[in-house]
Computed example of a mutant assay.
Amino acid sequence: GRVVGINSQIYSRTGGYQGVSFAIPIDVALRVKDEIVKTGKVVHARLGVTVQQLSQNLAESFKLKQPDGALVSSVTPGSAAAKAGLQPGDVILKFNNKPILASNDLPALVSMEDPGDKVTLDVWRGGKHIALNATLSEAKDSVAANDATTSDAHGGKLGVAVRALTPEEKSEANLASGVLVEQVTGRAERAGIEPGDVILAVNGTSVKTVNQLQSLVSKEGKQLALLIQRGQDKIFIPVGLG
């Protein structure tokens, strides 16, 4: 036989095996083994982004024909990605000229590099390709008055009742802008938006006020990509407007 990976976890609702497991690719395992033998420890490279998988609806929101690539939902300040100019809403299509077909391809490719390595990124932004260069870092072990009222975005077209964040909420969530979702119905509810979410951007445009959200929803067409903060996580959620 041929070893292709090493099982590391299983998926289970009961504590027993249910037929789904997760494995470390053998190329990564061999590299880790070689580093431990050579230096006694493992040092990982880090790009500094959080990515998510593209669905077909999200791909269409970003004017992509296919849901290929890794969608950047957040960029760590001061990281290699931030210094290279990556932004939330970018779609990384290639890493060192290697195609990224799914979001989990990116961390696997980064893991094969060393801290200090220079890499090239083919990025989709605003409907066109751009090339960015990044120098990977080392992964550490720890790594207004109208707005105060609740408003239904665009008369129910989106299906959210939102309000401006208070200064205290902005400080607690470490946010400079965004609007807080208080109620959800219709399209937004079906898309998975929840009360308590903070809408940060619509199709790549930052949302600073309730009125701006209403304007963006009315102008951006039939498919929206909403950048949401939920707890400490930032995610994109596609919403179809019919």
Rank of each mutant, 00 (worst) to 15 (best):
A108H: 14
A81R: 08
L226F: 08
V143K: 05
G69F: 01
L226G: 03
S61V: 05
V72C: 04
A148K: 14
A29E: 01
I92W: 00
S137W: 00
Q223W: 01
A82Y: 07
E172A: 15
F95M: 08
D147E: 12
A164V: 06
T166V: 06
I92K: 04
I193D: 00
R230F: 07
D68H: 12
A29C: 07
Q9T: 06
P238Y: 08
V210G: 04
K234N: 10
A59C: 10
V210T: 15
D152M: 11
L58T: 04
G156V: 09
L226Y: 06
K170A: 07
A225F: 07
K94E: 15
G240N: 09
T135A: 10
A161I: 11
V184D: 00
A201E: 11
K222D: 13
E60G: 06
A191W: 04
T209A: 08
K222Q: 13
L200G: 02
R46H: 14
A188L: 09
S55N: 07
A153V: 15
L213R: 05
P99Q: 05
L180W: 01
A108W: 10
H129W: 02
P99F: 01
A144K: 11
S177I: 06
A23F: 05
N97G: 02
V20D: 02
K157F: 04
I199Y: 05
V42R: 09
P167F: 03
T150W: 09
L213T: 04
G231C: 06
F95V: 05
I199V: 15
Q56C: 03
L30A: 13
L165Q: 00
R46K: 13
Q212T: 09
L121D: 02
V75H: 10
V37G: 00
R46Q: 14
G116K: 11
G127V: 08
G89A: 06
T14H: 05
A45D: 02
A148R: 14
P238D: 00
D34K: 14
L216K: 02
G89N: 03
R125Q: 01
E194T: 12
V179L: 01
G192S: 04
T76L: 10
V91G: 00
A145V: 12
D147Y: 11
K98T: 14
T39L: 11
I92P: 02
S55A: 02
K234A: 11
L58H: 04
V198R: 09
G127H: 01
A80Y: 05
T120W: 04
V217G: 05
E169V: 10
L216M: 13
A134S: 08
A108V: 13
